[in-house]
Design a protein around this nucleic acid. Structure first.
Lengths: 141, 141
DNA sequence: TATTGTTATACTCTATAACTATA
DNA sequence: TATAGTTATAGAGTATAACAATA
């Protein structure tokens, strides 16, 4: 019976990122279950709110997801009354995803859950280390 | 037409991790295509080689995957002759996943690809920053 | 009783191609 | 011709439950 902790493949930053990221996503999914939402819904909601409305193409870029995947996510949020699809003032092809008042309320509540998941993930890091990590992550390609 | 780069939801380290990790995984999958392998196969190969043989249960912990998912991955690698399932000397339930000579050769080649994916991801970071990032990632829960 | 590996299965995610309406 | 959104669909990935062999 082996007792050692599982080893980690050397020189694989991508692997470490994906493993920790996957864990964070799974934890947030679990936390969002009572709302009938998943982490990607939260990201759509959060990104739309911060920008005051985003096209679905832009949301795809934020999520790193295919536009076809965005459609289903926005459908879900719209069905729950958390976002609207407004016409774009200049381009009639484009539809702006705008957070409703109820969406803003849900966002405020779920943001706490998202922060909680991050706090758990980063529990062993100090505030300065946490900032360093975030800064480095933002500079990845 | 909006010209700004897509914004990132604030205070979401888990999100940043998952996004960068997902990109790294996709890039490695693409690079491994000529070998008929995917990034999870590479991780199994790499972890087994470093430890000199791992049980499938341990591989599941390394991958952060269900044991049932490990079975299929090891099946694939065994079919290609890159790993063997050896009996465990002390526990007859357990089967040790051991890298074959051909597996070691494939690992040496694909390791270069994995390093290349990491290098691309980290192109904007200096060596010290890169070490810092890796160290912080290893301390995440 | 608990654990390792296995199978089957269902569900989610992701990726692709084709279509429409607009530009 | 190119782009935004949409639909349908196939393929990966993930999770769960049940089972046999072994502890």
């Amino acid at each position: 019976m082996t007792q050692e902790p599982p080893p980690v493949p050397s020189g694989r930053i991508g692997y470490l990122l994906a493993r920790a990221g996957g864990r964070a996503i799974r934890n947030l999914n679990r936390a969002l279950e009572p709302y009938g939402l998943r982490s990607r819904h939260y990201t759509v909601l959060s990104a739309s709110a911060e920008h005051g409305g985003l096209s679905q193409r832009e949301l795809g870029l934020v999520l790193g997801a295919d536009p076809s995947a965005v459609v289903a996510l926005v459908d879900d949020l719209q069905r729950k009354g958390l976002v609207r699809r407004d016409p774009h003032p200049e381009d009639r092809r484009t539809r702006l995803v705008v957070v409703t008042e109820e969406g803003a309320r849900t966002l405020a509540e779920t943001r706490k859950l998202a922060r909680g998941v991050d706090d758990e993930l980063l529990a062993d890091l100090g505030p300065a280390e946490r900032r360093t990590l975030e800064e480095l992550l933002l500079r990845l390609r």
